[in-house]
Design a protein around this nucleic acid. Structure first.
Lengths: 109, 109
DNA sequence: TGAACATATGAGCAATCGTTCATATGATAA
DNA sequence: TTATCATATGAACGATTGCTCATATGTTCA
């Protein structure tokens, strides 16, 4: 299915990260690839929030939000702390903000 | 389904981008959320490449690669130029690199 | 302890997605 | 024109995904 580019491929192949890392990268961005999760992360941009506040904000079920927070937490994108019955979620690190910011720039430039 | 957080919500809501932008952001990251597309973008990191070279590199069908290039092009993430029968693809702008770089950092920090 | 509240979780279903296969388009060279 | 090469495209199928619904867990307060 091809003409000749063996030399090029050898060079590129040497510079590519491992398949495992590339897979992890895809999995990470997959998490950003859903509007609900983007909204949740944006809601947490400035401050922590409890689950039901997020549900209220997005006009969605507590269950739906809880499921998504679990996904976000598993990827170390958010973290949580308990205060009585309430659990507050916040962004886990600054990469979340900068990744979203880069995407924003791409769209609005 | 909630306790009281009307004041907080009002404040957060005012700072949230439009639903349309948030949707677009999700759609953009969805494109990064696939290993094949990540690999293609990584392959183009340094230089342009023709379709069949990418297919060779990834050990995938020309058809599969072509479909994915179409998706990437529709999102303005890659661009192409023709040279005879061959069509060369390259990264469209630097946001691709910086988005991937941020994801990489999140994973490896 | 029991009731009420906040959150988490498992199963199931509809919708979306990525690949394959077959075929079409477009370009070059004889 | 015809053959061949490089790429694009449409339909279809299997796999993944996000939500809903019902229910479970965990905490507080009376």
């Amino acid at each position: 299915m091809a003409h000749d580019h063996a030399a090029l491929l050898k060079h590129i192949k040497a510079d590519m990260p491992s398949d495992e890392l590339l897979q992890d990268l895809g999995d990470l961005f997959k998490i950003f690839g859903d509007t609900t999760r983007i909204k949740i992360m944006y809601a947490l941009y400035e401050d922590e929030m409890c689950v039901c506040a997020i549900a209220d904000l997005l006009g969605m079920t507590q269950s739906a939000i809880s499921h998504q927070l679990k996904v976000l937490k598993a990827a170390n994108l958010v973290e949580s702390r308990r205060e009585g019955k309430t659990i507050y979620y916040s962004l886990a690190d600054d990469h979340v903000k900068s990744i979203i910011a880069q995407g924003y720039e791409h769209l609005t430039e």
